[in-house]
Simulated assay, not measured.
Amino acid sequence: MEQIRKLKGGELFDLLRIVDKLDLDLAEIKELLFDNDDNVDVNDDKAVKERGVAIMDYFLKIILSKGETLRGPINELFAKLCNTTVEEIESLDYDVYLKLYSEFYQVLDLKAFFALLKLPVFQAS
């Protein structure tokens, strides 16, 4: 199995399908990702790490609470990104599977992705 590759444009729709299943609180995400940017010095490794931990904690809680709903779509996306099958992804050892999650968040530019969700077309009316 290959390492996880960078996302391509067409996979935006896979991500949107996953996001839809998450029932995310976009206001909370906006606060985590955007509202406090002025307060985090990008040269302060500790502050940047703390922000990253807060964001990952938020997503991990949601993913864990909706695991069965997300399992299929996430494994399908991982299979695409690793150029393999869903069956191979599901048969990975636990530590290798967790490493995929870690690599995924490194590949995905969360701020850019959720900036897209701020577009009017994605806003509830």
Results as ranks from 00 to 15, higher is better:
M1F: 11
M1S: 05
E2M: 10
E2P: 14
Q3K: 10
Q3Y: 13
Q3H: 10
R5S: 09
K6T: 11
L7T: 03
L7A: 01
G9H: 01
G10F: 09
G10M: 00
G10Y: 12
E11H: 05
L12R: 07
F13M: 03
F13Q: 01
F13T: 11
L15M: 15
L15F: 09
L15D: 02
L15P: 02
D20W: 06
D20C: 06
D20A: 06
K21D: 03
L22V: 03
L24T: 03
L26S: 01
I29D: 00
I29F: 02
E31T: 12
L32G: 01
L33G: 00
F34K: 05
F34G: 08
N36G: 06
D37M: 11
D37E: 14
D37F: 08
D38I: 12
D38A: 14
N39C: 00
V40I: 15
D41G: 05
V42E: 14
V42N: 08
V42C: 07
N43K: 14
D44G: 07
D44M: 06
D45Q: 14
K46F: 12
A47P: 14
V48L: 03
E50M: 05
E50L: 11
E50V: 04
R51Q: 15
R51F: 02
R51L: 11
G52L: 08
V53H: 11
A54N: 14
I55L: 13
M56P: 04
M56H: 09
D57A: 11
D57F: 03
Y58H: 10
L60C: 10
L60V: 08
I62K: 15
I63E: 06
L64F: 11
L64N: 15
L64Y: 12
S65K: 12
G67V: 11
G67F: 13
G67C: 12
G67N: 14
L70C: 05
R71G: 04
R71A: 09
R71S: 14
R71M: 10
G72H: 13
I74S: 00
I74A: 01
L77S: 03
F78T: 01
F78Q: 00
F78D: 00
F78A: 02
A79M: 03
A79G: 09
A79D: 05
K80T: 11
K80W: 08
L81S: 02
L81R: 05
L81Y: 07
L81V: 08
C82T: 13
C82H: 05
N83W: 04
T85R: 02
T85S: 15
T85H: 03
V86P: 04
E87P: 07
E87D: 13
E87C: 01
I89M: 05
I89T: 01
L92S: 02
L92T: 04
D93G: 13
Y94L: 02
Y94H: 04
D95E: 11
D95C: 07
D95L: 12
V96G: 04
Y97K: 03
L98D: 04
K99V: 09
L100K: 15
Y101I: 03
S102K: 06
E103S: 11
E103D: 12
Y105D: 00
Y105W: 10
Y105R: 00
Q106E: 09
Q106S: 11
V107Y: 04
V107C: 07
L108P: 04
L108N: 01
D109I: 06
L110T: 08
L110A: 06
L110I: 15
F113S: 02
F113P: 02
L117S: 01
K118P: 01
K118R: 10
L119I: 01
P120N: 00
P120Q: 01
F122V: 00
A124V: 10
A124Y: 04
